[in-house]
């Protein structure tokens, strides 16, 4: 490596680091738009971007009102690095109504609602310990963009 390259490399690394979170969120939006929104159709989404970056072992919850007489689709959409992501639907007493783990890791769920009610959608990325390769030396903790989409059918 010549001297110029050696001097510039750390600077490039630093600039990349400074730009990364901005790029990351933009990419998260782009990912949600390109990869997730089309999968929600023919349901109509609620116009709000609910996305976040999750690491293995992390979880997030979304609270929303679901209206009587409507049919909904709830969908969790994650980058391939988080392929083991799962979600649960719970009522406000945290009683589980749906668990994707019991449905072959389903990434979406359609349901009808007879009474307007609040529900919690819990999205969780399993801890690294549950992966086959997790304990191998040098294995990095995976992270990625997760979008939670809720759509209704008019």
């Amino acid at each position: 490596m010549n001297i110029k390259t050696h001097k510039l490399l750390p600077l490039i690394v630093l600039l990349f680091a400074l730009a990364a979170p901005v790029v990351s969120y933009g990419q998260c939006k782009g990912f949600a738009k390109r990869k997730c929104l089309p999968l929600l159709k023919p349901f109509i989404h609620n116009g709000q971007l609910n996305s976040t970056t999750l690491m293995e072992g992390e979880s997030a919850e979304l609270v929303m009102t679901f209206h009587a007489g409507q049919k909904y689709r709830v969908m969790v959409c994650a980058q391939p690095s988080l392929e083991n992501i799962g979600f649960k639907m719970m009522d406000m007493d945290r009683e589980i109504i749906f668990d994707s783990a019991e449905q072959d890791g389903a990434k979406q769920w359609d349901f009808n609602v007879n009474a307007t009610q609040q529900m919690i959608i819990l999205v969780a990325v399993p801890k690294p310990g549950k992966h086959a390769s997790a304990n191998l030396p040098g294995t990095m903790v995976q992270s990625g963009c997760v979008a939670l989409l809720v759509g209704f059918q008019d």
Partner: peptide
Amino acid sequence: AINKSGKVFYTIPSPLELTSI
């Protein structure tokens, strides 16, 4: 406060949904 989850988001049904119902 959140001992079961790291992040809590609230989302609001859209005006499209409200007018539909």
